[in-house]
């Protein structure tokens, strides 16, 4: 991507409940990176339920072929649910983006690593639909990670079949959240 990742290997971990768009979010991130010439792996694990079950996406982005696709030390961890936050906290050494409506209590250690992104609340408030929460979160992650927002939008339009206008607006909303915009 434009100015990142500069080091060999970037690990991103996204987790939440089924139906929150965790895999979609990973798919857009991954496709945007591929379009910029990077190599990408994405492991997805989930329960047998279509909705409500546990979902995790593990992305590795690298300028070279990725050997191990397993995220053992995430540079960014996106937590969409309290169980996910608890379960995968120790797999992250970088920033943690969490949705405060889903993750009500964060660990007291390392507050500087935590960034609250009220994606679910904003999706309800602006679009009257929680389905757009993942795009709000993706926008926030794009800004925080210094990724190319135009590339992200292009990839998103390729991946998501419908409601392009709202999805673009949700991504923009996340991208311009005060919590992620550098002071």
């Amino acid at each position: 991507m434009s100015d990142a990742p500069t080091k060999a290997r970037t690990e991103i971990l996204i987790s939440g409940f089924g139906g929150q768009g965790v895999i979609r979010m990973g798919q857009i991130l991954g496709l945007a990176a591929i379009k910029q010439g990077h190599r990408v792996t994405m492991l997805k694990s989930h329960g047998t339920e279509t909705r409500g079950g546990y979902v995790r996406a593990q992305l590795v982005i690298s300028p070279e072929y990725v050997d191990s696709p397993v995220v053992e030390n995430a540079d960014v961890f996106v937590a969409f649910s309290a169980p996910a936050y608890k379960k995968f906290f120790d797999f992250c050494r970088g920033k943690i983006l969490y949705d405060p409506e889903m993750v009500e209590a964060i660990r007291p250690d390392a507050p500087e690593r935590h960034v609250a992104v009220p994606a679910t609340a904003l999706a309800k408030e602006r679009f009257n639909n929680v389905l757009f929460a993942n795009m709000v979160m993706l926008g926030a992650l794009t800004r925080l990670g210094g990724l190319d927002v135009e590339a992200m939008k292009k990839a998103m339009l390729e991946v998501i079949p419908r409601f392009h206008e709202q999805n673009l607006a949700a991504l923009e909303l996340g991208y311009t959240l005060p919590a992620v915009v550098p002071a």
Binding site: G30, V40, L43, K44, P69
Partner: peptide, 9 residues
């Protein structure tokens, strides 16, 4: 299961 389910470039 990993190779069949995983996504990659």
């Amino acid at each position: 299961q990993v190779i069949s389910d995983m996504w990659e470039d």
